[in-house]
Design a protein around this nucleic acid. Structure first.
Length: 611
RNA sequence: GGGGCGUUAGCUCAAUUGGUUAGAGCAUCGGAUUGUCGAUCCGAAGGUUGUGGGUUCGAGUCCCAUACGCCUCGCCA
C-alpha cells in the first residue's frame, strides 16, 4: 500500500488493455516487475540522451525514464516528441531509483519505470493553462475549460471525496433503515419560497412544469405512503440571484422520518454528519451538537447562524445608556431601537484604519456608525465618545460586555434588526482578523424554536419563516389566531461555523391544521385547492407524524475543505450570472421548438447574440 | 434591481504625475544537454491593453457607456 489516499485500494484491479497498474500504485515492492502504465505527460525533462517523463493519472504520478541504451530508436523519438498533456502508453520495468535520487514528495518516489516502449496514444494542444495544483488561472477560464481544470489533482481529489462522502451517507442512512427513492424533476410550481425554474409543456400550451426547489411535498407523501424512512441525494433548483455558496442547481441530502420528532432527526443527522466528516476528511466530529434557540442566537450573536468557534458575544446595553449624555445612544433607545455592543478581545491597539474597516462592515447592513471605546491599562476608557460616559457608567458598560484592559468596545445604536445584522458582521470580521475562526475547526450548532411566521411588509401578510408545512410548536397553538408572531415553529437549522448547513422541521400531519396554516398565509380556498388539494387530501388518509431535514451536500463538502465557494466542489458549476461558461447554457432554441411549445418571444425582449 | 473590485502576451502579473519601440516569469517554438523531478543553458516568436465612444499634441493610465468575471445588499420558504 502507498500512502496516497487516492491510490487504488487492494481489492481493485485497474488492469485493462492499456495498463497493468495505476500511476500511483507502484512502490519498492514492485521492483523487477514489468508493467504497463497509461496516463498524461505531466512534465518532460529532456537531457538529449535520458528523458524523464512524469506520467499522471488520477491515482498519482510515476516517473518514466527513457534511456537510449535500453529503448528502441522509435521509443526514444516518441519520448522526444512528447509535450504537456499527451496521452501515453508505457511498457517497462520497475526499478529502484539510484541512491540519493529518490523523490520524497511522491508516494512512488522510491521507484521509476525504465521504458521499453513509449507510445503516444493521443496528442494534445497546448492547454490554456497548466494542469497543476499550482495553477492560478482565473475562475472563468477554469470554468470554460472545466474538463482540464478537473484534470488537476486537487480538483480530481475533490470529486473523489464527494463520491466518498455520498457513499458514506448512503451507507449510514441505509443502515438506519432509510430507503432511497427518486422523486420527479418535472413537478408542479408551488407558491411561497424561491422563484421556480419552469419547463414549458408541449402537450398543454401555456402550462408549465416547475423544477423542484426541493422534494418537500413528495417526501411527505412518501411518509403517507408508508415508507417510514426515506432519503435521496437530490438535485434542487432555485432561480434566484447567486452567491459563493449558492448555485442555481445544488444537491441536498433530503431525508424524512415517520413517527419521529425533532430529537430523532437530530440523532440521525448527527450520526450522518459524523460519518460524512470521517469519510470526507477523516475528522472526528463531536456529537451531540450544541444547541441554541433562535432567540438566544439573536440576543447573543445577532445572527441565526453564529460562528461558535469563538466568543465575542453581543450584549444589549439599552437599559444602561438610555439616559446617557451621548445623544446617538439616547435617541436610538427613545425611538424604540436598541444599543448593543461587544468587547473585541485584544483589539484595543486597533488603528484608526482598522476601526474604519469594522465600521464599513457594519455599514453594509445599514449601521450609520460604529461607536467605540478603548480600554486602557488603568481601566479607563478612551476614544472620541469616552467623554460622554461618567466613570460609573463606563464601569457598568465594561462589566456588561466583559471587557478587559486592552480590549476594544464596539457599539451600534439602531433598530434591533440593523444593530444585530451590523454587529454580527463586525463580530465575523473580528473573528477572521483576530485569527479566532480557524480553518479545520468545526463548530456545529442546532438552532431551534424559530418563529413560525414572519410579517411580509411588501405583501402585508404573514409568510412562513421555513415553509408552510412546518408544524407549530404544540404549546403555541392557542396563539395561531390571536398573535401569529408569538407562535414558535418546530423547525431547526444546523449551522457549521457560519454557514447554514441544513434546515428541517417537524411537519404538519393533520389536514385541518394544514388548511388553517394556509388560511393564515392568506391563500384563498380556491388557491389551496388548486395548488395543494392533492396534498391536503393525502394528509386526510391517515398520516403518521413525521419530520425531516435536508443538509446541503455542496456546502458540507466546501465547509470540510474550508472553501468559500460551493462551485469548487461541483464538477460543472455555473457562473454568478447562472451561465455555464463551457457549454454556453442557457442557449437559443430553434423556431420549431418554440412553435411546438407555443412560445413567442417578443422581438424587443430577445437577448443579444452571445459570442 | 443596487453598490464595490477586476479585465494588459496562451497563463499569472508589471508598466512613476498621461509621454520614446507596453515588460517579466511560466507555457510555446528552435538549438544544446545521459540522473532530472517547478531540470538547466542559448536563442526565437508571441499584444487592436475586454468592446465602443470621448477628453488630449499624446491614453494601458483620465471620463462616459457596455460586456464578462468575482464580492456584496436586496432576494434565496
Amino acid at each position: 500500500m502507498t500512502s496516497n489516499p487516492q491510490a487504488s485500494t487492494p481489492h481493485q484491479s485497474l488492469e485493462t488493455l492499456y495498463r497493468s497498474h495505476s500511476c500511483g500504485a507502484l512502490t519498492a515492492a514492485d521492483v523487477g516487475a514489468t508493467v504497463k502504465l497509461a496516463g498524461w505527460a505531466a512534465n518532460r525533462r529532456d537531457f538529449g540522451g535520458l528523458i524523464f517523463i512524469d506520467l499522471r493519472d488520477r491515482y498519482g504520478i510515476t516517473q518514466v525514464v527513457v534511456d537510449p541504451q535500453r529503448a528502441s530508436k522509435e521509443t526514444h523519438a516518441a519520448a522526444e516528441s512528447v509535450r504537456m498533456e499527451f496521452v501515453l502508453g508505457v511498457t517497462g520495468k520497475v526499478q529502484r531509483r539510484l541512491a540519493g535520487k529518490e523523490n520524497p514528495n511522491l508516494p512512488t518516489g522510491q521507484i521509476e519505470v525504465i521504458a521499453e516502449k513509449v507510445e503516444v496514444l493521443s496528442v494534445a494542444q497546448t492547454p490554456p493553462f497548466e494542469i497543476t495544483d499550482r495553477c492560478k488561472a482565473n475562475e472563468d477560464l477554469r470554468l470554460k475549460y472545466r474538463y482540464l481544470d478537473l484534470r488537476r489533482p486537487e480538483m480530481n481529489a475533490r470529486m473523489v471525496m464527494r463520491h466518498r462522502v455520498a457513499l458514506a451517507v448512503r451507507d449510514y442512512l441505509s443502515a438506519q433503515g432509510f430507503v432511497e427513492i427518486e422523486t420527479p424533476i418535472l413537478a408542479k410550481s408551488t407558491p411561497e419560497g424561491a422563484r421556480d425554474y419552469l419547463v414549458p409543456s408541449r402537450l398543454y400550451h401555456g402550462k408549465f412544469y416547475a423544477l423542484p426547489q426541493s422534494p418537500q411535498l413528495f417526501k411527505q407523501l412518501l411518509m403517507v405512503a408508508g415508507f417510514d424512512r426515506y432519503f435521496q441525494i437530490a438535485k434542487c433548483m432555485r432561480d434566484e440571484d447567486l452567491r459563493g455558496n449558492r448555485q442555481p442547481e445544488f444537491t441536498q441530502i433530503d431525508l424524512e422520518m415517520s413517527y419521529a420528532g425533532q430529537e430523532d432527526v437530530f440523532r440521525v443527522t448527527e450520526g450522518m454528519m459524523a460519518a460524512a466528516f470521517k469519510a470526507g476528511i477523516n475528522y472526528d466530529l463531536k456529537v451531540p451538537f450544541a444547541r441554541l434557540t433562535y432567540k438566544e442566537c439573536m440576543d447573543r450573536f445577532g445572527s441565526d447562524k453564529p460562528d461558535l468557534r469563538f466568543g465575542l458575544e453581543l450584549r444589549e446595553v439599552s437599559d444602561l445608556v438610555k439616559d446617557a449624555e451621548f445623544k446617538v445612544f439616547r435617541e436610538a433607545v427613545a425611538k424604540g431601537g436598541i444599543v448593543k455592543g461587544l468587547a473585541a478581545t485584544g483589539a484595543g491597539a486597533y488603528s484608526r484604519k482598522q476601526i474604519d474597516d469594522l465600521t464599513a462592515a457594519a455599514a453594509v447592513f445599514g449601521a450609520r456608525g460604529l461607536a467605540w471605546l478603548k480600554l486602557e491599562a488603568d481601566g479607563k476608557a478612551s476614544g472620541p465618545i469616552a467623554k460622554f460616559f461618567a466613570a460609573d457608567l463606563t464601569a457598568r458598560l465594561v462589566e456588561r460586555l466583559g471587557g478587559k484592559p486592552g480590549d476594544l468596545l464596539l457599539f451600534v445604536a439602531d433598530s434591533a434588526k440593523v444593530a444585530n445584522n451590523s454587529l454580527s458582521a463586525v463580530r465575523s470580521k473580528l473573528g477572521a482578523d483576530l485569527g479566532l475562526a480557524k480553518d479545520g475547526e468545526f463548530a456545529c450548532l442546532w438552532v431551534t424554536d424559530f418563529p413560525l411566521f414572519a410579517w411580509d411588509e411588501e405583501e402585508k401578510r404573514w409568510a412562513s419563516e421555513h415553509h408552510p408545512f412546518t408544524a407549530p410548536n404544540w404549546d403555541d397553538l392557542q396563539h395561531l389566531d390571536t398573535d401569529p408572531a408569538k407562535v414558535r415553529s418546530q423547525s431547526y437549522d444546523l449551522v457549521i461555523n457560519d454557514w447554514e448547513m441544513a434546515s428541517g422541521s417537524v411537519r404538519i400531519h393533520d389536514s385541518r391544521l394544514q388548511k388553517k396554516i394556509f388560511e393564515i398565509l392568506k391563500l384563498s380556498e380556491d388557491e389551496i385547492q388548486k395548488r395543494f388539494g392533492f396534498f391536503t387530501e393525502a394528509l386526510s388518509y391517515g398520516t403518521p407524524p413525521h419530520a425531516g431535514i435536508a443538509p446541503g451536500l455542496d456546502r458540507l463538502l466546501a465547509r470540510m475543505l474550508s472553501l468559500s465557494s460551493i462551485a469548487e466542489i461541483m464538477a460543472f458549476p455555473k457562473t454568478q450570472r447562472a451561465i455555464d461558461a463551457m457549454t454556453g447554457a442557457p442557449g437559443d432554441v430553434s423556431e420549431r421548438q418554440l412553435k411546438e411549445l407555443g412560445i413567442v418571444i417578443p422581438e424587443e425582449e430577445q437577448a443579444p447574440e452571445k459570442k
